[in-house]
């Protein structure tokens, strides 16, 4: 029973990793930008909610912060990242690295290095009793559901909306997309807006589960990276599956020995890289 429990808790944690990762996956998929600041944007959103929630309620704080994240993403893409795209792969990588340093230091300056958390009151400790030894926390379950819904939503958006089709076209061949009348710069802005919106959701739910400090961005980034790679680059469903596999790996490791959790996740990641480097669900090429 303890193993069943470990697997279920890991599965639910996987939903959180998928949330932290799906924006990373989208930004890489459309623009081939590896966003090294992705975790820091998640933590930034969590701090934003902490700061706003002091003056208003939690729901309103989240509703206000998430659109700001999307707007920030659009502006940073159009104002900064788009300019670096023609200068090779290194320039955007360095810029996102710079974002990471800037965000961490601003957070340190404004909020100090003390641990914070997003206070969600009773919701954080609520749980459903399934059997005598098996309980499911309301927050992990909610996080998992949000992860699945966001993946589903993004899937339908990319498949059926006009902007979604333009995103896929730009991702496939920006030159040809330009020639059929698509403004790649705007489309890239939208991709990053969605990416940071998703990073924000992940960050806020992360901050409800655990305490965090300004230096936590890179940790969130590592988990997001591992989810994307395990699942297979360029596939949103793969990223969800990757997050779940990573979550279950960590939780089984922690069951063996509490301090082994994160290590076990890394081992799963390395095993996938060796045995199936294309990931579990790589993007299907139309070939």
């Amino acid at each position: 029973m303890i193993w069943t429990n470990a697997i279920i808790q890991g599965l639910l944690t996987g939903g959180l990793y998928a949330l932290l990762a799906c924006g990373l996956s989208l930004i890489f998929g459309v623009m081939r930008i590896v966003n090294l600041s992705h975790g820091d944007f998640s933590i930034l959103a969590a701090y934003g909610v902490v700061a706003l929630a002091m003056h208003t309620n939690l729901i309103l704080a989240i509703v206000l912060v998430l659109p700001v994240m999307a707007l920030l993403g659009y502006l940073l893409q159009r104002g900064v990242l788009n300019r670096s795209l023609s200068k090779g792969a290194l320039a955007p990588l360095l810029i996102t690295f710079a974002f990471s340093i800037i965000i961490q230091n601003i957070l340190l300056q404004v909020f100090s290095s003390d641990n914070r958390s997003v206070q969600s009151g009773r919701f954080a400790s609520m749980s459903f009793k399934i059997t005598k030894n098996l309980q499911i926390g309301a927050l992990p379950l909610f996080t998992f559901i949000v992860g699945v819904l966001l993946t589903l939503g993004l899937h339908y958006f990319l498949t059926y909306s006009r902007v979604g089709r333009a995103l896929r076209a730009s991702s496939d061949d920006p030159g040809a997309a330009d020639l059929v009348g698509i403004n790649n710069k705007h489309i890239y802005g939208i991709a990053t807006a969605i990416g940071l919106f998703a990073a924000g959701i992940g960050g806020v739910l992360f901050g409800m589960r655990t305490q965090f400090a300004p230096s936590f961005g890179p940790i969130a980034l590592i988990f997001a990276f591992e989810s994307v790679i395990i699942g297979g680059l360029g596939s949103l469903w793969g990223t969800l599956i990757g997050g779940i596999v990573l979550g279950i790996g960590q939780s089984i490791g922690a069951q063996i020995q509490p301090s082994y959790g994160v290590l076990a996740g890394h081992l799963v990641f390395i095993a996938i890289l060796i045995l199936r480097p294309q990931g579990l669900m790589p993007k299907q090429k139309g070939k």
Binding site: R165, A176, V180, Q284, G286
Partner: peptide, 25 residues
């Protein structure tokens, strides 16, 4: 509008989606 010496379709999209992108933007 133009076509290329080596066709550049959006390989992962269906024929209809490829053409729809052209007529949408």
């Amino acid at each position: 509008a133009r076509t290329f010496q080596i066709p550049k379709p959006f390989a992962d999209m269906t024929v209809f989606e490829n053409v729809l992108v052209g007529s949408t933007f």
